[in-house]
Design a binder for these strands. Structure first.
Length: 854
RNA sequence: GCCCGGGUGGCGGAACGGUAUACGCAGAGCACUUAAAAUGCUUUUCCCGUAAGGGAGUGUGGGUUCGAGUCCCACCCCGGGCACCA
């Protein structure tokens, strides 16, 4: 079964075993097996045109080691892979070349699959998924419909980047220095009709759920900050002109209300026009215009320079009746809170800066504990200058003021989130089409009559005085596939290229069967046909990756995204490994979808990813991020050709802690490659026959025997703890010791091969077979260490005098403290440092050291 | 500015509060070889010393402790993320 190469010919060995695994389906995961299950998941890659980056095999090797280790420990392991294949680059390629993005995507997938297979990962290839496959995205569309039916999807005008020159919407990453990446044309914000998902409805659950998961703290904190929960109050300020009604603000510090000397509304605030008095009209108009034309970049550049303009109107402070001016300023954002604030310059840095600039009063209402009078003061303290509340701590005052104002009906305690609803549509071709059509109110009414699964409130959109109703396609119409198009260029009016495909777009729809017929042909016979226009937006790339971990459980299922049995058996990933760049978006979106599915009773657990780990970035040899432009990119194909996959895998893991950011070093791979060659030579002679040093019987020297058992223990522990670098160095230590033995029992070498197998599986298979073992090493049990062998009979004890290392003694493991002290005193160097002084105290750390204090 | 990580030999990095620098790379020397490669052996934190030995040493300064790379306080530097969030 093995090859018969004489020396370590990895170019022959590795493909040999890869095809062996493939033929025997060695890594097939069984749904419903009686064995305990273990599901270890990688973040599936976007198959880019440039091929695999060295960072991919880093994380993938880590999970592969775990998968192989768990199999050896008797688990039924699910270790799958697939392709997150919708996305911008394929679309850009299509625009440039005119070839269908699917063609380009499939080419890239073929290349990625070849590269990943050449790394020998133990994926169950029968479960491969591709988000662009209609059999897959049928369920992406289906899940979207569940959200839609729950009232979690709606349509709204949202600003996007628009390039007038290219007549297209641009993604953030297509804009460089405020210009379009292609052509360098100016871009502007423009409102377009967009699908939005109500992720904010899950804000509280998304924060709560973080408590129970085993994730890096930094990632949890990042998500928490992103959701940005803050408790405060919504306070209504009466405007002086009663016609204008109230100005609502959100504040986290109602305790500072007496310090409020002015108010600010965002330039986009709907009340700005009404608030502006005639004398200020010109100034406000100019200011709004300026603010609107600012790009995000300019805004952040100007972060420190506050600016604003007085509206001319006044509001009344509800706590003391004070008349305070209302300003318009762009340091207040329409997207957070109510788009208006009460300004308390004495206790807020931004308000302070603004008040200094425009000479607004800054009365102090919180005293510093040290009585310092420095302003602005942000810290804790007692409330002052606030009649009725003086002397309270600020949290007490916050509660009391909110309650008092609430009693008057002008405030209520509220919770605010930074999290915004998720903009879920793209004006692109290469994405999942929305399974939605737009119909008239009357047709919606007819279609809805018999259905109980529509949202409580219809999703509508008004355009040129006509209200369109969003009608979901029946399940029978899924998947809704992309039509062929003449051009991948956007329509020019902000819609996707799909807007040109009239025959696909404008249809007669049978609302029961989902059948469609072009609107240009006569209306088909039958009761359920209505006139409809398809949605031209497509879903963002995130959609497919929001639930792929569930599809792996049952990837061929055509009746459900996964069967209840499969969901019950596997539940979800036990370990999820991927880059920290997904700390927020992907991991938050997927959690959101999962929670919706959980609320619908479709999945068993409220959180999708129990345990998460981020692999670090591998830097170029120059210590800088790898990039084409720097020419420091390492191509895995080259390394495999030069050293083999086993060496590459071993080196990636040996480089340093998995989570650390670490530079690549081509010289370094020599080290692990030598280690593998050393094992080869220990097993086989130059003729490729079994090395006579390996004996059928016989024992190792006691120290080496102990080291073997220590190594079995440490490698297992380290794999479980994802500390692969130290596992490898331990195997190197064992190998160095075996090499120095006069002879090595075959059994000991086989144990080492089993330990090595998850790391360097091809070599392990080859040597396992060449040493005469039957079957694949993948079916061998993980070695068991003998705890009794870990205990040393003699130990070396460090002797310290006054905490300084002065020598060491070898003693019987059971030696008492008194015996050890005797031995220590007998040591000439120790005696020299004690110099006859009396010993005041002895500290004995069992098995480690004796510290003598004189 | 805020929030996270980090600062250990020439380099990547080890080190339950208990011998700092495991393992690997790189360097030096030796053996094998006609030679080279490969391989094996020895050696390499710094300072003083021929040596034996002694002293210093984990970014800086303090502290806790019999004992600190590890715990606490302050500071410096590097990396990453977020940023007018009321």
């Amino acid at each position: 079964m093995a090859t018969n190469c004489k020396d370590y010919d990895f170019l022959q060995i590795e493909p040999h075993w890869q095809s062996f695994w493939e033929k025997t389906k060695a890594f097939k995961a069984e749904n419903g097996s009686a064995k305990p299950k273990y599901y270890v998941l990688d973040m599936f890659p976007y198959p880019s045109g440039t091929g695999l980056h060295i960072g991919h095999p880093e994380g993938y090797t880590a999970t592969d080691i775990l998968a192989r280790y768990k199999r050896a420990k008797g688990f039924n392991v699910l270790h799958p892979i697939g392709w997150d294949a919708f996305g911008l680059p394929a679309e850009q390629h299509a625009v440039k070349t005119g070839t269908h993005p699917a063609t380009n995507t499939q080419n890239n997938i073929v290349n990625f699959r070849r590269q990943i297979k050449s790394l020998g990962f133990s994926y169950d290839w029968d479960r491969e998924v591709d988000t662009t496959d209609p059999k897959y995205f049928r369920w992406t569309q289906w899940i979207f419909l569940q959200l839609f039916k729950q009232g979690l999807a709606y349509v709204d005008e949202r600003p996007v980047w628009w390039c007038p020159e290219l007549r297209t919407v641009l993604a953030n990453e297509e804009i460089v220095d405020g210009k379009s990446e292609v052509g360098g044309f100016p871009v502007e914000r423009r409102n377009l009709r967009q699908w939005v998902l109500r992720i904010t409805a899950y804000a509280e659950q998304l924060i709560d759920g973080l408590k129970g998961v085993d994730w890096p703290d930094s990632t949890k904190r990042m998500q928490e900050a992103w959701i940005g929960r803050s408790e405060g109050a919504e306070v209504h300020f009466k405007l002086e002109d009663p016609k204008l009604g109230d100005l609502k603000i959100f504040t986290t510090r109602p305790d500072t209300l007496f310090g409020c000397t002015y108010m600010v509304v965002a330039p986009e605030h709907p009340l700005v026009d009404a608030l502006t008095v005639p004398e200020q009209r010109e100034a406000v108009k100019a200011y709004r215009f300026k603010a609107a034309s600012k790009s995000d970049l300019e805004r952040t550049d100007l972060a420190k320079d506050k600016s604003g303009v007085f509206s001319g109107s006044y509001a009344i402070n509800p706590v003391n009746g004070a008349r305070i001016p209302v300003w318009v300023a762009d340091y207040v954002l329409m997207g957070y809170g109510t788009g208006a604030i009460m300004a308390v310059p004495a206790h807020d840095e931004r308000d302070w800066e603004f008040a200094q600039l425009y000479n607004l009063p800054t009365p102090r209402v919180i005293a510093a504990p040290d009585d310092s009078d420095k302003l602005p003061y942000i810290g804790d303290g007692k409330v002052i200058n606030s009649p009725g509340y003086d002397g309270l701590s600020w949290p007490e005052a916050k509660k009391k003021i909110t309650a008092d104002l609430a009693a008057k009906g002008v405030a209520k305690g509220t919770v605010n989130y930074k999290l915004r609803d998720w903009l879920f549509s793209r004006q692109r071709y290469w994405g999942e089409p929305f399974p939605i059509v737009w119909v008239t109110e009357a047709d919606y009414g007819c279609a809805a009559a018999g259905r109980k699964d529509l949202p409580a409130h219809p999703v509508t959109f008004a355009e040129k005085g006509v209200t369109h109703y969003a009608l979901p396609l029946p399940d029978a119409a899924l998947p809704l596939v992309l039509p062929a198009v003449q051009s991948y260029l956007p329509s020019g009016n902000g819609e996707s290229p799909l807007a040109h495909e009239t025959a696909w777009l404008e249809i007669w729809l049978d609302t029961v069967t989902g059948a469609a017929s072009p609107a240009s042909s006569p209306k088909p016979a039958g009761e359920n046909w209505i006139r409809a226009r398809r949605e031209t937006n497509t879903m963002p790339q995130w959609a497919g990756s929001c639930w792929y971990y569930l599809r792996f459980l049952d990837p061929q299922n055509s009746l459900a995204f996964a069967s209840p049995e499969a969901l019950k058996y596997w539940v979800g990933p036990d370990l999820y490994v991927g880059g920290a760049e997904h700390s927020v978006l992907h991991l938050l979106y997927a959690r959101f979808w999962h929670k919706v599915l959980f609320d619908l009773g479709l999945v068993a657990e409220p959180e999708p990813f129990k345990k998460l780990f981020h692999q670090g970035i591998i830097l170029g040899e120059d210590g800088v991020k790898m990039s084409k432009s720097r020419g420091n990119v390492v191509n895995p194909d080259d390394i495999i050709r030069g050293y083999g996959t086993d060496s590459l895998r071993l080196y990636l893991m040996f480089l340093g802690p998995l989570e650390a950011m670490k530079p690549w070093n081509t010289k370094g791979i020599e080290g692990v490659h030598r280690f593998l060659k050393k094992i080869w030579r220990e097993c086989l002679t130059e003729e490729g026959t079994v090395n006579p040093r390996l004996t059928a019987t016989g024992a190792l020297a006691p120290d080496t025997e102990k080291l073997l058992h220590e190594t079995i223990k440490k490698v297992g522990d380290d794999i479980e703890g994802l500390r692969f670098n130290t596992a490898i160095s331990q195997m190197m230590i064992l190998m160095n010791a075996l090499q120095k033995e006069p002879a090595v029992p075959r059994a000991a070498m086989l144990d080492l091969l089993c330990l090595l197998a998850p790391f360097a599986p091809h070599m392990a298979e080859e040597l396992w077979a060449r040493l005469g073992q039957n079957g694949s090493i993948m079916n061998a049990d993980w070695p068991v260490f003998d705890a009794g062998k870990l205990v040393a009979t003699t130990i070396t004890i460090v002797i310290q005098v006054n905490g300084k290392h002065r020598g060491d003694v070898t003693a019987d493991a059971g030696a008492s403290e008194a015996e050890l002290v005797q031995l220590a005193l007998a040591n000439p160097k120790v005696a020299q440092h004690i110099a006859g002084q009396p010993i005041k105290r002895t500290i004995h750390v069992k098995g480690r050291l004796i510290n003598l204090l004189v």
